[in-house]
């Protein structure tokens, strides 16, 4: 349960990124936030794990106001809120395993983590997470030898290793091609359904939002201008959110139905040619 109560955020340069946001998200929802760049989507998502700190209002995660958290409480919160980034943010020179196990850092004592002393269960969990995104054969590969889609799957595995209650995904498919984008979204959706993890995804592709979301939140200029289930959404809604006509580049295309299994093959083959 995440609740925004009159949350505002003004950056130091004076930009009002969030304006009096009121929002309530229940456990297990799959929410897609849409809006143009600069609408405040990233800021909204980053408030939930306090990578940015709202300047006023209350933000409750499980009935606890996280805006008053100290460093220790913050670490605990972040352990339970996994985050996926547009550029994967893996350590390129480290192996896939080292990247994925870093999802356990919040649970592991500093000394043990420095000397790589993880309990067997943690290593097993990391491997299971890789299996869930079908990339377990790359476990000892260096991350920079993977393709973009594979790297994004590793970063999903890293988040799963955290055993989070919430997954925050900030433009997870913006730097991927259409088939790979659908693959990544499908994994996110699967995880959401199977583990009942609240998932909040920033997207700017309308068709993808419609295909995967349970609920869509539209943002413009730091305000929520639409909030409702997918069934209530039509093209007019998006035109309202974007404040302009829908264009070709607002759509990702290449839906899974068109190219089902081939996307997996081509991508792995692509990575193999690079190895």
């Amino acid at each position: 349960m995440i609740e925004f109560k009159d949350v505002s955020l003004v950056y130091q340069n004076g930009t009002e990124a969030l304006k009096n946001i009121n929002l309530s998200i229940s456990q297990g929802e799959f929410i897609v936030i849409v809006g143009l760049s600069g609408a405040g989507k990233s800021t909204l998502i980053r408030s939930i794990n306090r990578l940015v700190t709202p300047t006023s209002g209350q933000l409750l995660v499980d009935d606890d106001n996280i805006l008053s958290y100290n460093t220790k409480q913050l670490r605990k919160l972040r352990t339970k809120a996994g985050m996926i980034f547009q550029h994967h943010n893996l350590v390129k020179r480290s192996t896939v395993m080292k990247n994925v196990i870093s999802g356990r850092l919040g649970y592991t004592s500093t000394l043990k983590s420095i000397f790589n002393l993880y309990p067997k269960e943690d290593l097993q969990l990391a491997y299971e997470s890789l299996k869930r995104v079908n990339i377990e054969d790359k476990v000892y590969t260096r991350s920079d030898q993977l393709s973009g889609g594979q790297q994004q799957r590793v970063s999903i595995a890293r988040v799963l290793t955290q055993q989070p209650n919430i997954i925050l995904a900030d433009e997870p498919v913006a730097s991927l091609d259409p088939p790979t984008s659908h693959q990544v979204m499908t994994y996110l959706k699967e995880v959401n359904r199977e583990d009942k993890i609240t998932t909040i995804v920033n997207l700017h592709f309308i068709d993808m939002a419609m295909e995967y979301a349970d609920r869509i939140i539209g943002m413009r200029d730091g305000e929520i201008v639409f909030d409702g289930p997918v069934s209530e959404v039509n093209e007019g809604t998006f035109e309202d959110i974007y404040g302009r006509k829908i264009r070709e580049d607002d759509l990702r295309g290449g839906s899974e139905a068109n190219e089902p299994v081939s996307s997996f093959n081509t991508e792995d083959e692509f990575a193999q040619t690079r190895n």
Partner: peptide, 20 residues
């Protein structure tokens, strides 16, 4: 951004240093 990802994992400063 890698450092930010580590922070978002719940890693502390020293862990971020060693892993990120």
């Amino acid at each position: 951004q890698v450092v930010e990802a580590m922070e978002a994992n719940g890693a502390n400063k020293i862990q971020t240093l060693f892993y990120g």
